[in-house]
Structure formats: C-alpha cells, structure tokens
Design a protein around this nucleic acid. Sequence first.
DNA 1: ATTATATCCGAATAATTACTCGGGTTATGA
DNA 2: TCATAACCCGAGTAATTATTCGGATATAAT
Lengths: 214, 214
Amino acid sequence: MAKNTQVIDFSIRKQPVQQRSKALVAALLDATARLLVTIGYIAITTNKVAEKAGVGIGSLYEYFPNKESLVAALIERNSMEIVEKIQLGMEQALQKPHEEALRFWLEKMVDALDERRDEVRVVIFEVPFLRQMPLLETMPKTLMNVAFSAHQRANDRVQFTYPKAAVYHLTSMVSAAIINMVVHPPQHIPREILLDELAELILRAMEGGVKTTG
Amino acid sequence: MAKNTQVIDFSIRKQPVQQRSKALVAALLDATARLLVTIGYIAITTNKVAEKAGVGIGSLYEYFPNKESLVAALIERNSMEIVEKIQLGMEQALQKPHEEALRFWLEKMVDALDERRDEVRVVIFEVPFLRQMPLLETMPKTLMNVAFSAHQRANDRVQFTYPKAAVYHLTSMVSAAIINMVVHPPQHIPREILLDELAELILRAMEGGVKTTG
DNA sequence: ATTATATCCGAATAATTACTCGGGTTATGA
DNA sequence: TCATAACCCGAGTAATTATTCGGATATAAT
C-alpha cells in the first residue's frame, strides 16, 4: 500500500583492493563531504561529486550505485571516528569520581561532534534517510544504557519507578542537548557554563529518584 | 563563498480569492500531505501533487513556484493548528496547581502532535529546509521561556546559577523528548507511564536548583 | 449584456540528472 | 614477458522533472 518505506540501496558495488582505487574512493568521499557543507544535500549530484573529486563519472559508478550510497558511506566512515572518541570518553569518565564523570563525558561528546560541526549539522538536518542507518539509531541507546547502569551502581539507593521509561527519555534528551549545543550554539553563553549547567540538570533529574533506606 | 545558504523561494505566487481557487489550493496542500506520508519528501514532484489533487499542472504553478513552497505552505497551515493547541494547553496548565501543571501540559503537547503523527515524522526527518522556517525555530523558545518564568514564580526560592543556560538546554531537551515520544514510541511502555516519568525527570531537573532561604 | 478579471488547463519544451558501455590503462603474478 | 584481472574514463543516451504559455472557461462588476 503506502510505498513510504522506500528501500534505499546503500550497498557498495565493488570493494577497492589496490591503493589507487582506495585513494579514488577516499577522494570521492572527501568531495562528498565538501559538497555537503557547501551546497547542501539536495543539490549534490553524482556528476558534481566526481568532478570535485577529480575522477571520471564512470569511476564513481564502479563503486557506488547512486548518491545515497555515497553519502551513506561518508556517514559510516566519519561517524566511526566520532563513536570511537565518544566511547573512549566514556571509558575515561567511568574511571573518575562520580561527581565529575558526567560533566567530563558530556564535554568529550561535544568535542567529538564539534570537530565536524558543519558536516554534523548538514547530515542531521538534511539527510532524509538517517533513520535507516542502524548505527546511528542504536548507538545512543547503547551508550545511555551503559551510563545509566554505571550511575545506578554508584548510587545504589536511588531507584526509579520506571527505569525503562527514564532511560528512554534520558537518551533522547541528552542526545538532543548535545547535538543542539553543536549545531545551534547560543550567543553570549560560554561553553563551560553550558556544560556545567547541562551536567547539573541531568544529574538532578537522575539523582532525584526515590531513595531507599540503604 | 560557501553557497550553503541556498535561499529557497517560499513565496506564494498569487493569493486565491474566489472559493474555487481556495478549494484548489487546499486540494493541492491535502495532496501534498498525503504524498508526504506515502512516498516521502524526496519522491514528491509538482506533477505528482497536481495529479493526486486532480488539478492541472498549470494551475499548480499559478499559485506555487516550486515543490518547496508547496511543502512550506503545508507546514505553515498545519503547524498553526498544532501551535494553537499547545498554547491553549499551556494556558490551561497555568491555571492548575503547580504539581500537576507540567504533566498536564506535556500530555497536551503530545496529543497535539500525535494527531498528525505521520506528517510530523516525515516533516521532521525529511524536510531539509525546516531550519529556515521562522515559526518552528522560535516557537519552542518562546514557549519554554513562558513555562520557565511561571515555574520560577511558583518556586521563588529555587534559583539557577545560569538561568539562560538552563532555559536553553531545557528547550532542546523537552522538545526532543516530546517529539521522540510521537515519532519513536517505545514498545511495551504505556503512554501514561512515559508521561509520568518525563514530568518527573523535568521537574526534578528544575527543582533541584539552589534554594535560597525564603 | 458586456467587459474585465480571475481561474483553469496540459501539451510541449527546457533543463537537469542518472547511468551505461566500450575501450583504454595500469598492476599482478606465474 | 605475457596473460589476466583490476582499474579508470567520459561522451552519449535514457529518464526524470520543472516550467511555460496561449487559449478556454468561469465569475464579478457595471
């Protein structure tokens, strides 16, 4: 009936094996990134990408079947780097005293996204098939589950009436706050203050749970 | 330099004055809405909209210069309805005892969005020029400022070290939580519980501020 | 009733974009 | 060094989509 779920072909056509072909694919992705931030997602065409990358249009089609697969491959490549930094940040945070851990982790996440600010902005606001990319759907959930568990262990007297609902909301709220800081930074409020306040808000939301007599 | 800010022509070409032309424009917007949820934003073309609406393609161009203006007009029309409901909900909430007000308002907002669930989902995830629509950018900020002020009045001993930063974060977090509930509702968690937990989380975040001796 | 104005239309054209295919070049390895 | 495989290419074609324009019809105004 509703043909809404337009299945998109993300697959790569051929894996580059020699160095030159790997370089060619990398050049294509770099060009895609540059075009994304300069002309936006809609205006991108395969021909423009090939031209910007300095390769023939035929070569592009050796490896990518369409524009979507090109952008998807770029997102995959770059979000890997970001995810690794965020996970490293969490591991470091878990070593720290509980009061500092959240603030520290938030800062690491913002830093990781800030390095690719423009790309993040365009990808989040303009790429229409983001929801179909498994990594970006599950990653925040996984991370928040780890963080929530750690927090519960460190505060074993704090209990939530509906922990699943709490995790569900905290996931969307924390993700949104961080992304918002990167793509819509407010005028006149220093970054340090934003991070302090965000950490406090979240901490209070989490620590206000019912306390059992321990 | 970077021609990123692709200016989009949202303007309507001609205001319909007779009834038949108003009906024609309405039919075009209805068709746009139906196509949005069935085939998605990218796949929409002016020709398809005209066909679905049962009007000639020429008539479409009498009133709309392009696909974007069509979708923008639809968003404008429908978000008006939603905004009115949300504002009404807030006015009602402000009459209620402070403990119930937030929970009540959250429910009204979720209800308002839920009535147009599919449209909201597509618009938020697929329409690439959303940020350029002034209403949708400023509305959450305005609303949250009102809510925050009301809360501060009702709790005049609670002070934030950085109120502006708090409002900034709360705006993005509350918006995200509500929209997420509508477009990504979790399995197995009843709506009432989700609303209860969300209200508690936000209330705790806001009430944990430094309390002055009143 | 007549003029003026608003509306409606869709075949035809322009413009854009996707994508192929055959042929040439470079690396590999036996 | 020769065969095979991997790679690169872009002119040309197919397919899609945007948009116009002149003429027909309907409503409003006098």
